Amino acid sequence: MAFRNRQSMIQWMQTPGIIPNCPPGLEYLTQINQLLVCQRFDLLEVLGCFATSKKYEVMNNQGHRIYYAEERSNCFLRYLCGPSRPFTMTIYDNVGRDVITMHRTLRSSCCWRNCYVQKLKVEAPPGEKIGYVYQYFHPFLPKFKIKNENKEDVMKIRGPCMLSSCVTDLDFNLLSLDEEIVLGKISKKWAGFMRELFTNADKFGIQFPLDLDVKIKALMLGASFLIDYMYFEHWP
C-alpha cells in the first residue's frame, strides 16, 4: 500500500493519548485549530495519460503530517463520471490504522452544477457514523449543511459566488445555523497560475475553533474533499 511505502519518509505529528468520548484516531483534532489538506501531485494525470485516484496529505500548521487520505473508486467510473463519481475516502493515521472513512454515492447530475444535491457520509472509526455533509440548492452560491449522525443540522457552509481560483484564495465559511456567525472556514489556496493551469494538485486550508467538537472538525475535513471534487477537479 502506498501509505506504508511512504511511512518512513514522513514527519508525523506526535500521537496524543487516549481521550474519553473521542472516536479513536480523532484525538489529534483536539489539539489543533487548523488543517492543511494537500493533494499529492500525480504526473500521469497531469500528462492526461490516466485518471488516477486522488491521494491527500493532511497536516497541522507546523507542517507535521496528521493523516494520509486515499481515494478508492472504480477506474471506469473515474472516466465516465469524472468529478461526479462515487468514491470511498479512507484516512489513515501514523501507524496505518483506518481512522475515518468517507462515502460519496453516485448522484444524479445536470448541466447546471448547483441544481442537484450531493452528500457525503463520514464514519469514525469506519463503520460508525458521525455525520453527513449535504449540499442544498441555492441559485448562485455553493451551500452545504453539516449534519450529525442523526441527520440533524448542526452547522452550515457557504461558498463564494465566483469559483475561479486563478487569482486568489476562495473561502467557504463555516456558519451557525442562522448564518449570522462565522465560526471557521475552508479555503481553496491559489497555487499560482502555472500550477493551477497544468495540475490538479489542490491545496485547502481549514480553520475552526480549538474547542469545536472533534466530530465536526472531521466533517469539515470531509467537506473539503467534497468541495474539491465538485468545484475544482477537471475531467480527465
Rank of each mutant, 00 (worst) to 15 (best):
N74T: 11
S164P: 00
I32W: 09
H138Y: 00
L106K: 06
Q14I: 01
S187W: 02
A69N: 02
G63R: 01
F50G: 01
L35Q: 03
A124D: 08
G127A: 12
P83N: 15
V46H: 04
G222V: 06
E233N: 05
I146E: 03
D178I: 01
R85N: 04
A191G: 03
Y28G: 14
F137G: 00
C110R: 04
D178C: 07
Y28V: 09
L26G: 10
P160D: 14
G25V: 07
W235C: 13
F144D: 01
Y67F: 14
S53N: 09
R158L: 10
K156H: 14
F76L: 15
W12K: 05
K55S: 13
R158N: 12
G205T: 13
E180A: 13
N21E: 14
G184A: 13
E149T: 03
L141A: 00
A69P: 01
C111M: 09
F193K: 02
K55D: 13
M89H: 05
I130W: 04
E180K: 15
R6K: 11
V154W: 09
T105I: 02
Y134I: 00
E71T: 06
M162I: 14
D202H: 15
C49R: 04
E233T: 13
C115T: 06
M194Q: 01
D153K: 15
E71W: 05
Q207D: 07
I10P: 02
L177F: 02
E179M: 09
K217W: 08
G25D: 04
P16K: 05
L44K: 00
I146S: 06
F204N: 07
E57W: 05
C22G: 04
D202F: 10
N5D: 12
L174Y: 05
I19P: 01
G159L: 07
L29G: 13
M155C: 13
M89P: 01
K54Y: 05
I181S: 05
